[in-house]
């Protein structure tokens, strides 16, 4: 092969040796903190026994689950029919979302990422404890492809 061409290959890869790892690391650091592990079709044993609250929507049912001592919390998400979005994420927002609950004003930066769901199936996410005491909970179903909130779920 021609010498200048090989030289150009080496130059490109020298640049990539810096840029690709940098890109990967920055993107990795940008991943929001997600403590819960996604459980697809969680075995019944993994579910906490007490259903504290239930919200029944047209396409899905969600249950807020806990144990008798209220020490652990779970969000159980059951799709009843195939959702319009192939993949979406659930955020937990602060009890008084800015803008009085308007979907347009929701900003994921101010919320806690709970987990990702797909168009079908049941999902269980464990919830982090915080000061709200789970009396007033707001979840947002969020379409991350189009970057817009789809629905608010208030308990």
């Amino acid at each position: 092969m021609m010498r200048p061409l090989r030289k150009r290959h080496l130059q490109v890869w020298t640049a990539w040796a810096v840029l690709i790892p940098a890109g990967i690391v920055f993107a990795w650091l940008a991943i929001p903190d997600m403590v819960p592990v996604k459980l697809l079709q969680a075995p019944a044993a993994g579910l906490l026994p007490v259903i504290k609250k239930t919200s029944d929507k047209k396409d899905y049912t969600i249950n807020l689950r806990t144990d008798p001592g209220n020490t652990q919390w779970q969000l159980e998400w059951k799709n009843k029919s195939v959702l319009m979005v192939p993949s979406a994420v659930i955020y937990k927002a602060s009890p008084n979302p800015s803008g009085g609950g308007a979907l347009e004003s929701f900003r994921p930066e101010n919320a806690i990422l709970v987990g990702r769901i797909e168009a079908r199936g049941d999902y269980v996410f464990s919830l982090q404890q915080d000061s709200t005491g789970y009396n007033q909970l707001h979840f947002i179903l969020y379409d991350f492809i189009h970057q817009k909130a789809i629905e608010y779920i208030n308990f």
């Binding site: 890869w13 890109g23 991943i31 996604k38």
Partner: peptide, 23 residues
Amino acid sequence: MFVYLAYFLVVMHVMLGVIQYES
């Protein structure tokens, strides 16, 4: 040789896409 640029784009497509929602 633009395949190298494409490779970089693919890496970032994966890293900034699906991996952002994977724990």
